[in-house]
Design a protein around this nucleic acid. Sequence first.
RNA 1: GGGCAGCUAGCUCAGUUGGUUAGAGCGCCACGUUCACACCGUGGAGGUCACAGGUUCGAGUCCUGUGCUGCCCACCA
Length: 1033
Amino acid sequence: MTELAKHYDHRAAQARCRTLWDAARAWHAEAPPAGSPPGRVFSLVIPPPNVTGALHLGHALNTTLQDILVRTRRMQGYRTLWMPGTDHAGIATQAVVERRLLEEEKLSRHDLGREALVTRIWAWKEQYEKRILGQLRDLGCSCDWDRVRFTLDEQCGAAVRTAFFQLFRQGLVRRGKRLVNWDTFLQTAVSDDEVFHEEVKGHFWHIRYSCVDPRPGEPASVTVATTRPETLLGDTAVAVHPAPAAALDAVEHELRTKRALAASKELPAIDAALDDIAERRRDLLPLLETLAAMARAGRQVRLPLLDRGIPLVADEWAKPELGSGCVKITPAHDPNDYEVGLRQRLPMVNILNPDGTLNAAAGTYSGLTIRKARERVVADLEANGQLERVEDRLIELAHSDRSKTPIEPYLADQWFIQMAEIAQPAIDAVASGRIRIVPERYAKGYLDWLSEKRDWPVSRQLWWGHRIPIWHVAGVAEIDLAAAFAGHATVAWRSDEAGGWFVCSSDETLPRDTVAGQPLIHDPDVLDTWFSSALWPHSTLGWPAATPELAAFYPTSTLVTSRDILTLWVARMVIMGVFDTGQIPFHEVSIHPKILDRYGETMSKSKGNGVDPVDVIETLGADALRFALAGLATETQDVRMPVEFQCPACGHLLEQTTANRTKPRLDCPKCGQPFRTQWAASEADLALPRGPAVSEKFEAGRNFSNKLWNATRFVLMSLDGRPGEPLPALDTPALELADRWLVSRLASVCREARQAIDDYRYAELARVLYGFAWDEFCSAYLELSKPRLADPAHRDQARGMLLVGLDTILRLLHPIMPFVTEEIWQQLRTVAGGRRMPWDDPCGPLPDSIMTARWPEPPADWIDERTERQFGSFLAVVGAIREIRARQNVPPRTRLLAVIKAPLPVAELLEPMLPAIQGMAVVDVTAIGPDACGSPGAATATAAGCEVFVDLADFVDIAAEIARLEKDNAKTEGFIESKRKKLADEKFAARAPEAVVAKERAQLAELEDRLGKGQATLAELKARPANDSATGG
RNA sequence: GGGCAGCUAGCUCAGUUGGUUAGAGCGCCACGUUCACACCGUGGAGGUCACAGGUUCGAGUCCUGUGCUGCCCACCA
């Protein structure tokens, strides 16, 4: 006699399964030997988590979905590889380590030096890589653990250098002064994607620049406005529009066009704008025309404070409709001004040092921080009477995502990759459908972004990352280089336009003294972290070497990611994949939602609104977490996950709010006991027990695991220690009705599950399997099997069929809930290890692990719609009787008498089900058929086109029944009225399809019939003497 | 400013090409523990499908507009 524990123990099961899978290396994929056909292949690379910190719920979602795909395909017989690994995450990781260094040791990276800092970051990486890989294993991810990669490891490094070298050789790598987003804290350029904008309170300073030697009729000064007065130290021009009148005309025309189409509500704003234009035309235009003429004449204005003459230039960047119509131009510190500078060939004066202080170009202000310089500049302007006025204003200020400090636009030498040429194949791949993005709507963002083909700035002034494989050498002739690198196919060079050379090589190092007479200096910069990420699908498979893995698994099948890195990562992977290998990196991209908190904010560590996956895995189990996450993965953009703190003392759930989510300790409102949160830092707080952040969402998954466990418990008890095999034949018409139904439902559900996975509809997969396992298999089929198990004539068949159902459910659920299904699979081995499903190898052994069991593939002709309908009617009738019992408070075990009045076709379907009805509803059915008739005063209910009468004798609470019937009848009358109205409408009769009209008529008839019955019963009840005993007795 | 998405039960979400009386899980209410499972069972209550128009015989579903929420892109001195 096998008897399982009453509850599923997820902790023990997780440990056992992990041991089992690891011992068998069931997650490993071997490339076939060169030359032999790989067969059906499914491959996937993990979006490598950053080694900045531990995994959060978003990673858990991402990897769960991947594991669902991977486990399914593996069971379906594909040669399946899931490549795991982590990302060095350049800036992010260096920033984290630097910040800690500063906080804990008060040291900057310059105090430590390059080598020592990098050593520290490697130590950090080792710690978090271990943690991350452990978390992935805890989640049950069936990655190929023999192939773990890291974006900064040797293999990826070789790919990075080779890819960069080939870009260089094709002339796609350029060096140039560019205005970059300068992070003064980290002292590096960051890309546009690493910048976020935040509104801060600021001012708008109006500054007067005097004109040099004004002639009669010319103004003595021009006024410009700025939010950053200190930048005037780097001004090299003041701009005015070359044709201000025409520009105002254009603006006015645009406004009038807009006005013609605008809603009345918008009119006041537009009219105000038009008034403003008119006013400017009157008051400002003459001045602007004069200034434009002065600009054409090459006149100058005097830069305040530095007393430098700078040209007045005519440039369309100056908008006559805004401000004073004139704008100061600081080409080295403003993106738009930079463009003007290029157009007007202006000098570009950089006034900043890398650390954000002002340099010598700022004259007497040099050495000051930007903040101090601003104060001084403003004070000096005021003292000189050159500050016209100051406005308060909210300013969208750019901040570095990495250091959270304000970004300074900064002119610096940077490396760029030209995108124009290499982006096109990536556009074509998605536009042509060779890469399919699911859901499709995300393709637009990808295409829009790529079509801009903006150059990619790839250099970072950091120490953590792939060193740019470029060396500088000066003072030699090309012939010297040719001599030095004769026979080196892995070296290329180009003039640096300052008389020196850039030498690029895919070799790891070039000796310093390679070129006679002059040293080779390695470029100090490292590459943008996305450069190595862009190579991930092919670099992890061994490129540039022609490995068997690359041949077998590239292109990969699917990429699973969230929408926020569609451009940063996905697009660049396509670009570089095609550039390096000539092939797209993946065929499909599955985009999944992001998880938000109850306020719709993204979860993040710094906000403190997250859930730690480990908390869920420990308290409710990895399967519970996975099931919940899969259920949330719908096709919408985001999903919300309200979070609670669980009191470690009493288990009470405390809603997480904006107010309490960053507190280091909280007091349980129920038991009063304090507990600590992730923010606990003080010794006193750390001594308290931890109150994990959880969500009730995960409980459904835990309950489901337990339901499966207990269904298994029932099946094993019913087998009573005997092997439940061989299994019954499933494709024979001789099956009993319930079994035919089960077989049909299994076939339907397998088909739905397969389709859901093929379409990346993870939530639907979870929902279909949950509903089938719980409501149909456990609540219906399993209940029905109880009387059959008690009957020796049916016992063996019932046992076998229970195994068939359970086995199939386990296999279908395994990709979502690997642990509980594996644990049950192991339990079944002892008693039913000899069972073979039709899709199993009939001769070979049943696989040791469910991981390698075959995915169920029942033939389509198992689906029997008539039987499924029949079962639907049966369950509806059972429900109707139960409803009557419940509303009359009949004790559960009291057997009642029932009559089912059913039209002939339904009666025929139901008749074979009578024993089941009698068992599940605890009634004796005394009559069934079109003429069956309930005893007077019986309680009634309708279901599946039948009317069910339950003779309650003394049980009936007449008053309650009358009230219910009156309500019910009124409702029915309402429906009848609406149906009649619909059918009376000539247009409906004329235009609706005949089938719809017929259906409406049938429904009306049924409703009228129901109302007639209801009214009759009501009349009869009212005629009876009142009975004040609700439950009889 | 441009674009994308969302708004359906108290909460989180389904709702496939328009066609009965719009569903699930959780929560809530009532009843029920010698029954595989109280991490359970049975039943119930709860919705003007954000709002306003339109198309249609018929709209949660299609169209237009409005409001609110979130995200992406660009950004005005």
